[in-house]
Write a protein that binds this DNA or RNA. Structure first.
Lengths: 350, 350
DNA sequence: CTGAAAGCGCTTACAG
DNA sequence: CTGAAAGCGCTTACAG
């Protein structure tokens, strides 16, 4: 199959040298006489030779390339992780190749069931003998990771905390996310906040909730926890219907309240419904905070919503740093928690 | 380096069969006696064997994996292309691996010069003997593509049109982008529009401009073309300063005008400045249209801006279709132009 | 149905 | 400084 492409032997013949010399021209040019090197390069150019990485990978039983598994690129967090990882890896001349675990052909067929390709992709990078893999995960990944442990060099898990894990982990400070939201509205003098969220089915939810509770207790803010029917915009719209009477009653009492949404999506879904109730003004009567700002930070954003800026770039950079640290003989696995920042916008400070 | 991992020979020994039989267990299980197959699989499980893809790639001088090169994932268009490509490839069991050409370690160092990794990544996929490469490009890519032509099977170029190219091309209809923007504001009865854009330094700019001109002539809309100092938000803010007097004069004449921005970024940058001039209301006095809606379409978006929804998903799906079509013996290269749609929002229809 | 053997394109000591 | 040779982990006719 595709035998037309020249191989190292063809180059050697064209240059009148041995294949070992061609290999050295590519990998250890300083060992060759300048004249020989020149001859080899001419032959390469003339034939349009491009070496196959398979030969090298076979011999080393390892490649230099780093793998990055992301659940979903719609989520800006992972885009930023990818950016941080790629730029950081580039500093030491390494390449990062990415693949998505969160969506695949199964979706196309039925539009419902979401088959998770994470383990499949771990297997893929193991077969490729990747020099390291960064796994961004929304779920317990241990089974898939353990299976490939001996076939890739370091593995760094991003965004999921497995207690006692045998690998490095990079997390954002999700408790701080909840704390920052509550602290922000407390700073504005608001004494009553709703925490609007799904149940604690994934780690970050429980952590953000815990952080919000902690800050609420500390700041003397009353925190009312409300369960939303999902995380998407329609759930945000739906929940306003349930809250509207309470919000009006608060306004009647002259009390400003805050709605703290677990996701920006929820907040975005809630706001049109809220604005349609034209007696309630954002941010004067109701302040709105999202918790995973998936818009770029930008001071003068027309669409500005108060949200927490998630440290994706730093997380990606950190992950690569840990991958490289793992080469050190005295390496001990680290668990790095990256801080977050609130980004105040028009939905709280007007 | 890393000799600990078991190879096919170790599995053969453990199962008491030959390496050829192990290979068949993996690739042609139907050829084996069920009992033998079972024995091999036990050995594989016991040893934690994962085959190296390098051996296979070496022999075939080709891999099944498809490569996808994107300039930038901050741009939602390419995220959607990736999604479309991955889902479509998944239907036939193929994998898509991605890499970014638009940013790299160079950026880190100086924050200014943007070294383009496109040719480098084309070389990478050539060395990997990719089964096909989808190149999303913002610039003339011919040199890089020609260099690897013999080392990857099909190549599909997305988002850049090279006349007479020796490969398939997938484009969006950029003239239609301009036309749709003008048609939309003409439908609203607006007779004067500003086309705010950088110079025609890349293909899509000129095409959108041409489309806008064509529609303006057809619809009897006066089109004033204004040069912006860039494509980012600050350029949008700056340009309003220059236009503000003209906009006020139009309002004084009772004339509603439209601002058609080449990018959503420009529009987003412009709007706060415009709103600060509190005598001018959006959309009543000034209607705003962006041209590369990088937000997901969503009927009730609080942040809703009128923009053109770019068909990234369809482009990615189309690219994979073309990659696969190339396997047909009678294949002729295609140039596919995918249509776009306007997505009306609060900045024009309120 | 299974095994022995050749060979894919490369790298790496080693000898000279 | 260069070449000859072994070998990486796999697949693939082929023989039996």
């Amino acid at each position: 199959m595709r035998r037309g492409t020249p191989n190292i032997g063809a180059v050697a013949r064209a240059a009148g040298v041995s294949v070992g010399t061609v290999s050295n021209a590519l990998n250890n040019p300083e060992r060759l006489a300048p004249e020989t090197l020149e001859r080899v390069h001419s032959a390469i150019a003339e034939l349009g030779y491009i070496r196959s990485s398979a030969g090298r990978t076979l011999i080393q039983n390892a490649s230099e390339d780093l793998g990055l598994i992301v659940p979903d690129l719609i989520n800006r967090l992972f885009v930023e992780v990818a950016r941080g990882a790629q730029l950081t890896a580039g500093v030491t001349g390494k390449r990062v190749v990415m693949a998505n675990s969160g969506y695949n052909a199964h979706d196309l067929a039925n539009g419902i069931e979401q088959h998770d390709a994470q383990d499949d992709l771990l297997g893929y990078f193991a077969e490729a003998r990747a020099g390291g893999v960064i796994v961004c995960s929304m779920r317990e990944p241990s089974a898939g990771i353990d299976r490939i442990r001996n076939h890739v060099r370091p593995i760094v898990l991003v965004n999921y905390d497995v207690p006692g894990a045998d690998w490095c982990t990079v997390l954002m400070d999700n408790e701080q996310v909840g704390r920052a939201a509550v602290d922000h509205i407390a700073d504005l003098g608001i004494r009553h906040a709703y925490f609007l969220s799904i149940d604690d089915i994934v780690q970050p939810v429980g952590e953000r909730r815990r952080g919000a509770r902690e800050a609420a207790a500390r700041r003397g803010v009353r925190l009312t926890e409300v369960l939303t029917p999902g995380l998407m915009q329609n759930a945000g719209a739906a929940i306003i219907g349930e809250l509207i009477d309470a919000l009006r009653a608060a306004k009647a009492r002259g009390e400003r309240v805050a709605l703290l949404f677990l996701s920006d999506e929820l907040a975005i879904g809630a706001m049109p419904t809220l604005r349609a109730a034209s007696d309630l003004r954002i941010p004067d009567d109701v302040a709105i905070v999202g918790m995973d700002g998936d818009h770029r930070p930008s001071g003068n954003d027309w669409m500005s919503m108060t949200s927490i800026t998630l440290p994706g770039y730093a997380m990606g950079a950190e992950a690569v740093r840990l991958l490289e640290a793992e080469a050190q003989p005295d390496h001990a696995h680290e668990r790095v928690v990256v801080p977050v920042e609130i980004s105040p916008g028009a939905t709280t400070i007007g």
